[in-house]
């Protein structure tokens, strides 16, 4: 399979920060990570269809495994949201992200690095593998992180309304409150502008979320691939095996972290801070009224 060009020079293999192109369709470049991503999609589709065809009231092995994963994941989702109805809304996206990242991560560490093409570049002949972990490409993690953050905000708009979501970032409500509450709370003249600027910082925070989600996943997976390649280069046999298992574990952990963070972002987006604050104030007032007077 290794389509090696006829040359006397030995091809060199470089670990690059970016995914290498393996084919060009007009202006669209097919990279090895995109190919892995397509394979991951195919694997998930085959698994989903296999599961669908074997669905029974009394579950088989595959269905049992999926049910266990689903129940565990839903329980974990509940721990974050504290609300089963909210969990049921977020869960399909979170579990899809989990499976997509997991399969992509595991495909990336499959020992199929020997399949690829040899290209002549500026540094001579270089070997380009067909498969590279989809999440070891910043484009994939950036796509996932952007969708997660945009999805969370859309979910927030659907859950609590566009006005409340808008006020989380551009808090016009608190600015308006200066004129209505200044007589009762004079400190609002200081607190309101601070709250307004905190809202503006939240906009930056959304971009920071995209950066942290994408670079965390990319960094961990890419570091794993570098580690495996280094180990294989140092000692070809047996020694890389424990690291392969470690990377399998890292693949699960990273998929889990990304999914849980996605659930956290969706939960935060769906929570109404104002009503929570009002509820808290009301509860405090009720408590003060109901508690006996020290006099």
């Amino acid at each position: 399979m290794q389509a090696e060009q006829t040359t006397n020079q030995e091809p060199t293999e470089h670990i690059t920060l970016f995914a290498e192109p393996i084919h060009q369709y007009g202006s669209f470049t097919v990279t090895n990570s995109l190919l892995t991503s397509w394979i991951a999609v195919l694997v998930i589709i085959i698994l989903a269809l296999a599961l669908r065809s074997k669905l029974k009231t009394v579950p088989g092995k595959l269905q049992n495994l999926f049910e266990m994963i689903l129940e565990g994941a839903l329980g974990m989702c509940d721990q974050v949201t504290n609300d089963r109805r909210l969990s049921m809304k977020i869960f399909p996206i979170a579990i899809t992200v989990f499976f997509f990242i997991l399969v992509s991560n595991w495909l990336g560490i499959m020992p199929l690095g020997g399949f690829g093409i040899v290209e002549r570049g500026a540094e001579g002949l270089t070997f380009v593998p067909f498969l590279r972990g989809a999440t070891a490409d910043i484009n994939t993690t950036l796509a996932l992180a952007t969708m997660a953050v945009i999805g969370a905000n859309v979910f927030g708009v659907v859950s609590i309304g566009i006005w409340k979501t808008f006020n989380k970032y551009v808090n016009l409500k608190v600015l308006g409150g200066i004129f209505t509450k200044i007589r009762h709370e004079p400190t609002i003249i200081i607190v309101a502008p601070i709250t307004f600027f905190v809202g503006l910082i939240e906009i930056v925070g959304e971009f920071a979320k995209i950066a942290s989600l994408s670079f965390r996943l990319f960094g961990n997976v890419f570091a794993g691939e570098v580690l495996l390649a280094s180990m294989a280069a140092l000692v070809a046999y047996l020694v890389p095996i424990p690291f392969l298992f470690l990377e399998l574990l890292v693949g699960v952990i990273q998929a889990l972290i990304f999914s849980i963070l996605l659930v956290v972002y969706f939960t935060i987006a769906a929570s109404d801070h104002d009503s929570e604050h009002e509820e808290h104030t009301e509860a405090r007032a009720e408590h003060e009224l109901s508690s006996p007077s020290p006099l």
């Binding site: 920060l17 970016f18 995914a19 202006s27 669209f28 470049t29 990279t31 995109l34 991503s37 397509w38 991951a40 999609v41 998930i44 589709i45 399909p92 996206i93 899809t96 992200v97 499976f99 997509f100 989809a134 490409d137 910043i138 484009n139 994939t140 950036l142 796509a143 996932l144 952007t146 969708m147």
Partner: peptide
């Protein structure tokens, strides 16, 4: 990092198909 918006969209589409 060779960030390419076309690949980002392709990956987003992949995720959409999976979803």
């Amino acid at each position: 990092f060779h960030i390419d918006w076309k690949i980002i969209i392709a990956q987003a589409l992949n995720f959409g198909v999976v979803f």
